[in-house]
Design a protein around this nucleic acid. Structure first.
Length: 495
RNA sequence: GGCGACGUGGCCGAGCGGUCAGGCGGGGGACUGCAAAUCCCCUUUACGGCGGUUCGAAUCCGCCCGUCGCCUCCA
């Protein structure tokens, strides 16, 4: 089945055909490391993390590059505020970024280049642009001449003349044309600077991605991604630089994720309406955030709220219960089969898997894919309910349920990165810097002991004691559920 | 002002020409000592408004109303 994705460049959903199959080259714009990442960054990171996993599932050999902008105005400003150098700030937030990524289960990219480690490559790009007549130097600054690049505006569908009308020009700048953008900024006192053919200075923002892509991926890549807010001017400027140099298409497909909003407004630092990833994953299991992101189509806006997190938590538990309860079902009395033939669940699994991937292939429709997963959950629950009501499970049912649970878990784990700590193949990674809540430090053996004591009380019909134990454990973050197959206990995932 | 999105049932959120979304919530019932989980039924003749195209439109076209994003750093 072919993959179809929306290409911002054409404004249409197109069939995805890599330049050199089975290789796929992807680049996404990473973060500027001047502060902690928030949910808006998280969404973009999660979306492309899952998309990459899906491409790998399709059999592509993916090379994924995601950069760090580790020198820029905001980093320098932050350093000045803290009376330190910009590199200290950048290093700190890169370290914190990695902690965030581990916690929200975003896999590292294959290459994660830093701007400060690519200064020679950036200078090379700028030199080529000057040679080709697309850039000019003024007093140590270098600007790209937008009017020289005839395709300017093709990504963001903007008209140069119209842009010109609304353009404003900073009085301090020396550009010849208001639309021109800085490739190289001459050094100001106290700011980081590197030697260049134009004197000491530092790179402008838009050139880094071009230089890094040329170095790590090549002149034409398959997919370039990022947040919708990067379309203009950042990505437009990248195209201008890269294509001015090579004369070849820079990226064949441009993918942009919708923005995260809060109360309908864009989540951003400047508005102060942001929620850091750290805040989210210390309150909720990381899967809940992932699921929240995947429950909305990647191109639509996603309005974040804690209420929605709470709703998503419930939805997550429904998914997880279905998988986990295979274990519980096993504890019921197992009877011999009374019916022959294959259990209907096998068909539902097949349908689920087919539809799940079909949805993802249709412009990466994760909400629709999830809907198919929940249909399987529903079918599994019916089987489970019947078994519970009867108080026994047939071998045939059990096998079908286990097969379904396995399919669901494997798919969710592999593609969506969910439930990674359920039946881990190796030791689960500890959530870094996750604050230990009371429920988390309770010893498993001690909980089991209390559950056992409570069940003795239940047998003796001393419900006061039984309920007391259940209530108190709940306060400590342990949830008890009595089922025909015994008492199930779990740690609370939520706040 | 220009460009681009979007407005779906109580809420969230897919679908984008004709048969299903899905999640969350609310009500009733089954099961249970109770709770939880799960199942069944209901909440559901949903698609911003007004016209038009069509045998048929939430889906296509036009106009209007409303919300948001980009146009400056931004995932």
């Amino acid at each position: 089945m072919s993959l179809r994705i929306y290409n911002t460049l054409s404004g249409k959903v197109e069939e995805f055909v890599p330049l050199n199959p089975p290789n796929v080259l992807i680049y996404t714009c990473g973060v500027t490391v001047y502060d902690d990442s928030h949910v808006g960054h998280g969404r973009s990171l999660i979306v492309f993390d899952v998309f990459r996993r899906f491409l790998e599932h399709l059999g592509y050999n993916v090379k994924f590059v995601r950069n760090f902008t580790d020198v820029d105005d905001k980093i320098i400003k932050r350093a000045q505020e803290e009376c330190t150098d910009f590199m200290t700030i950048a290093d700190r937030y890169i370290a914190r970024y990695y902690i965030d990524m581990e916690n929200i289960r975003v896999r590292p990219a294959d290459v994660e280049p830093r701007v400060t480690e690519h200064i020679p490559e950036i200078i090379e790009v700028i030199e080529k642009l000057i040679q080709k007549g697309y850039a000019y130097e003024v007093d140590g600054d270098v600007y790209f001449s937008v009017k020289k690049f005839k395709d300017y505006g093709k990504l963001s569908k903007r008209d140069v003349e119209e842009l010109l009308a609304g353009a404003r020009i900073e009085p301090s700048e020396k550009k010849k044309d208001p639309l021109d953008f800085a490739l190289w900024k001459s050094a100001k006192a106290g700011e980081p600077a590197w030697e260049s053919p134009w004197g000491k200075g530092r790179p402008g923002w838009h050139t880094e991605c071009v230089a890094m892509i040329f170095k790590h991926l090549g002149e034409t890549i398959d997919i370039h991604g990022g947040g919708l807010d990067l379309v203009f001017p950042h990505h437009e400027n990248e195209i201008a630089q890269a294509e001015a140099i090579t004369g070849k298409p820079f990226a064949r497909y441009w993918m942009h994720n919708g923005l995260v909003t809060v109360g309908g407004q864009k989540m951003s630092k400047s508005l102060g309406n942001y929620v850091t990833l750290r805040e989210v994953y210390t309150k909720y299991h990381p899967d809940v955030l992932r699921l929240l992101v995947l429950f909305t189509h990647y191109r639509s806006p996603l309005d974040f709220s804690w209420e929605k997190m709470e709703e998503t938590l419930k939805a997550y538990e429904r998914l997880k219960n279905a998988v986990e309860d295979a274990e519980l079902l096993k504890k019921l009395k197992i009877t011999e089969d009374t019916e022959g033939g294959t259990h209907p669940l096998y068909d539902h699994v097949k349908t689920f898997e087919e539809n799940f991937y079909a949805s993802l292939s249709d412009d990466f429709n994760t909400p629709e894919a999830l809907a198919h997963a929940y249909k399987l959950v529903s079918e599994m629950n019916k089987v489970r309910n019947q078994a519970y009501v009867r108080g026994n499970v047939s071998k045939r049912e059990l096998e079908a349920y286990e097969f379904s649970a396995k399919s669901l878990l494997n798919t969710m784990k592999k593609i969506f990165g969910l439930m990674e700590d359920l039946y881990p193949e190796c030791e689960p990674k500890k959530l870094v810097e996750k604050e230990l809540e009371p429920g988390r430090v309770l010893d498993t053996k001690l909980v089991e002991l209390l559950v056992e004591a409570r069940n003795i009380a239940r047998k003796e019909k001393v419900f006061k004691i039984a309920d007391f134990i259940r209530d108190k454990l709940k306060e400590l973050g342990i949830i008890l559920e009595d089922t025909p197959a015994g008492t199930k206990w779990k740690r609370k995932e939520g706040a």
